[in-house]
């Protein structure tokens, strides 16, 4: 019976265990979130305060008119994402979403490599109601145009 937990202590032990797990999970989550959460950038923010190389971030803005260039491989495209203050070159390999067109809004998930933003994924809205929440504060003429285009 030596390994038996004392009656008085059992509930205490269980509570302590649960608390430790909870706090552990919380701390772990806090640390990981600090390092792993992908921050959302507007082009001007990206240019003013670029994230570290290779860090996963999101970039949201307008696809500049006439900027989409398809590379010879047929699946890599280069284009410019801009807001009213800055322009960021973006590279993406893959199948673009249906609503990805020049002059429309886009959210690109990816990372900075040198001065180019390499996107792993382009998010377009899935239904007519979807406007990226992150864009709601753009509050410039660009934002209005983004909403107009993606609405």
């Amino acid at each position: 019976m030596s390994t038996m937990i004392k009656p008085k202590h059992q509930r205490l032990v269980l509570i302590v265990l649960a608390l430790v797990a909870l706090i552990g999970a919380g701390l772990l989550a806090a640390i990981a979130l600090r390092n792993q959460a992908a921050y959302f950038y507007l082009p001007s923010e990206l240019v003013a305060k670029p994230p570290e190389m290779g860090r996963a971030v999101r970039l949201g803005g307008m696809v500049e008119k006439g900027s989409i260039r398809t590379q010879p491989d047929g699946v890599t495209i280069n284009f410019i994402v801009k807001d009213d203050k800055a322009r960021v070159p973006v590279r993406f390999s893959g199948i673009t979403p249906d609503l990805f067109v020049e002059g429309s809004g886009v959210v690109a998930e990816g990372r900075m490599e040198g001065t180019t933003f390499v996107a792993d994924n382009l998010l377009a809205k899935h239904d007519e109601k979807y406007v990226p929440r992150e864009m709601k504060n753009m509050s410039t003429a660009e934002a209005k145009a983004v909403i107009a285009e993606t609405k």
Partner: peptide, 23 residues
Amino acid sequence: GIVLVGTLYPLLTEAMGVKVSVG
């Protein structure tokens, strides 16, 4: 807890004016 915190974290940071997504 991890999933809940990760799911709600964008909401928390947004209340403080920073936009993130957790993946």
